[in-house]
Amino acid sequence: MSERKNFNHIQYILPSLLFILVIFLIPIIYTLVISFFSWNLLRPDLGIKFVGFKNYLQALKDPFTWETIGRTFYFVIISVLLELIFGFSLALSLNTEFKGWKIVQSIILIPFMIAPVVVGFAWKFIVNNDYGPLPHFLINLGLTSITENPLLANPTTAMFMIIMADVWEYTPFVTLVLLAGLKALPQEPYEAAYVDGASAIQRFFYITLPLLRPSIMVAVVIRTLTSLRVFDTIFIMTGGGPGSATETLSFYGYRLAFQSYQMGYSSTINLISFFLAIIFTLIYMKLIGWDSNE
C-alpha cells in the first residue's frame, strides 16, 4: 500500500518538479559557471577568461558590496517595519464593528493589485519637485526643510521615497493578513480578561499580540522575502541614484550586467542575492514549521 502511495505521489508531483528544476537549475548553473569567468561584453576581443575565485574575492573585498547589502537590509527593515505598524493599526481599526468597512477594505486592497512599475511611476510623478502635488503639499504644511532639495535628488529622502512606494503597495497585504488573524482569534481569553478587569491596553499586549504571533510572522517573512527582490520601483523612480543611494543588491546586479556589461562579476553579485534568498527561505520554513516531519 505504501509503495503504491509513493508511486502516485511522484506521478502528481513530477511534472511540476521537473518544470521548476529545468527552468530553475539551468540558469542558476549557468550563472554559477559564469561567476568564475571574466567576461566583458564591451570587450569581446579580451575573450571569456577563467579567473577562479577572483570575482568572489573582489566582491567580498569591495566595500561597495557591503554598502549595497547594508542598503538592501536598511530598505527591507524600514519598509517591513512601517508596513507592520501601519498594517497593524489599520487591521485593528477595521476589526471594530462598523457598516461600510467591507467597501473600505476593497479600496485599501487596490495598491496590492497594481504593477510595481506603475507604483514607481505614480510616486515619481507625485513627488516631482516642480509639478508633483506632494512637495507642494509639504510646503503648505510648512515642512520646507524637507523639500528644500528635491525629494528624489537627496540621498536620504530618495531612499525614503522608494520605501514609501513599497509601503504604499504592500501595507494592504499586511493589513489583510493581520485582519484575517484578528477575525480568527478565540473569544474566551477576552471574556476571562474582562472578568478579571484587565484594561484594553493589557488585553492587547497579553492576549492579542501573543495569539496573533503566527499571522505577524507570516506577514513579516513574506514581506521580507519579497522586498529583498525589489527592483521595478527603483528602476523607474531613481535608477539607483542619486549617486548610489538607492542601489540595492538586485539593482546592483542588474547594473553590472546591463550597464557595465561585466557578466562574470554581475553573476557573482547575483549569486550573493541568491544565497541570501536561500537563507531567508530556510528561516521561513523553520518559522511556519515546514521543516518538521509533518
Binding site: 508531483i13 542558476i28 549557468y30 519579497t226 538586485s250 549569486l271 542575492s273 541568491f274 536561500i278 520554513m285
Partner: peptide, 26 residues
C-alpha cells in the same frame, strides 16, 4: 517532501535578476 517544499519556495523567492541573463541567452 521538505526538500521539495524548499525548492518550490526558493524558486518563488529567487530575485528575478539572477535568472534574466541566462534566460535571454538561452
Amino acid at each position: 517532501a521538505n526538500l521539495l517544499s524548499f525548492i518550490i519556495l526558493l524558486a518563488r523567492m529567487t530575485p528575478p535578476v539572477v535568472m534574466v541573463l541566462p534566460f535571454f541567452l538561452i
